[in-house]
Write a protein that binds this DNA or RNA. Structure first.
Lengths: 184, 184
DNA sequence: CCGTCATGGAACACGTATGTTCCACTACGA
DNA sequence: TCGTAGTGGAACATACGTGTTCCATGACGG
């Protein structure tokens, strides 16, 4: 498969990036808005993605790739379950507006199904090695992870004075506390 | 000001209730859908709320009232700051789909501004009495409260087997752990 | 210099949500 | 029995998003 002319790839990527940013803020935003944000004509957008559903599918695929990439960077096999989860949290935090987009997708549709199994395994490991409270069901831990991640992202968006490092520190502290077993 | 005939009040309330339920699931849902859910004609809906914005304003007002009512029931002046916050959490949890609606409203627009001050005072009290980690900024505590509340609501919606009591127990446990100061 | 490639704009048809008007039906009290 | 309040349905005009077609422009390599 030939690499369809570097120009087309860049245009396509610009559209997808713009779509992620705008859809995160308003899942019902118009294609015209997305095209404008990507600095291309609406005609061009339709040339790459015939229907809205096609664009959404491409955004979904891009999101899935970024999630997998983040999970790889987090090196989930290393350390205790809780440590791995917190590392993953830091990687996910850098996904930016993609977080809002997935949260708007109501908890899980396509992307999560990919590595959700992997995450649940990490959580189980944490419950076994004593770094995560076994009284917490794995999917509740997952819900907790996503909700605090989203809260941290929104917190950072509202208070520009808060540095990335500071917010990440708050997130790490509260999440690890929430998951810690009572005996520890 | 006369009480405009009990019938009109009941119709109006039915429309607002239906609007809260549907808008929580889809903020862009049509007025026709809301009218159908309220079991009234679209004409009637327009008779009570001339424009969509009018209905949204009424929903906003209703949400604000319910929040205030919940805060009153929580008796925020009693006990430590953390205890009061957890009581409030339980009251808020029963607001149901209103939680999703306010979360869709992106963290805070009108309703929160009402009692946000009161909540921040409770959080400050908790920081002072040692029941809340003083290292956590009050508005981060607030963000944490809302995000875990939303997570709990979604968790309950997805897993019908989880009883209200069980979910509320998980929420209380993780939230109080997240807020607990390290020394304790 | 010419051809193609990628693009952007204009215009159109179509569907849907919205807001309005008009008329008919039902319940209820005087 | 009559008049009124509350309602619902049908129809209409309007606005907006969508998907398509057609044509013009600028860039780039032969």
């Amino acid at each position: 498969m030939a690499v369809t002319s570097g120009v087309k790839n860049r245009t396509r990527q610009a559209i997808i990036d713009a779509a992620i940013d705008l859809l995160a803020g308003n899942p019902a935003c118009s294609l015209g808005d997305i095209a404008a944000a990507a600095q291309v004509g609406r005609t061009t957008l339709h040339r790459y993605f015939a229907e809205r559903a096609d664009l959404l599918a491409a955004v979904s695929a891009e999101g899935g790739e970024r999630l997998v990439r983040a999970a790889t960077l987090a090196d989930l096999e290393r350390g205790t379950g809780a440590e791995a989860l917190l590392r993953l949290c830091r990687e996910y935090f850098d996904l930016g507006s993609l977080l809002s987009l997935m949260f708007a997708g109501q908890g899980g549709e396509c992307w999560e199904s990919q590595d959700e199994g992997g995450l649940l395994r990490v959580i189980e490991r944490g419950r076994a090695d004593g770094s995560i409270d076994p009284a917490l069901p794995p999917d509740w831990v997952l819900a907790l992870l996503w909700s605090q991640l989203y809260a941290a992202w929104e917190y950072r968006a509202q208070r520009q004075d808060a540095s990335r490092h500071h917010v990440l520190d708050l997130l790490t502290r509260t999440l690890s506390n929430a998951l810690r077993p009572p005996s520890s």
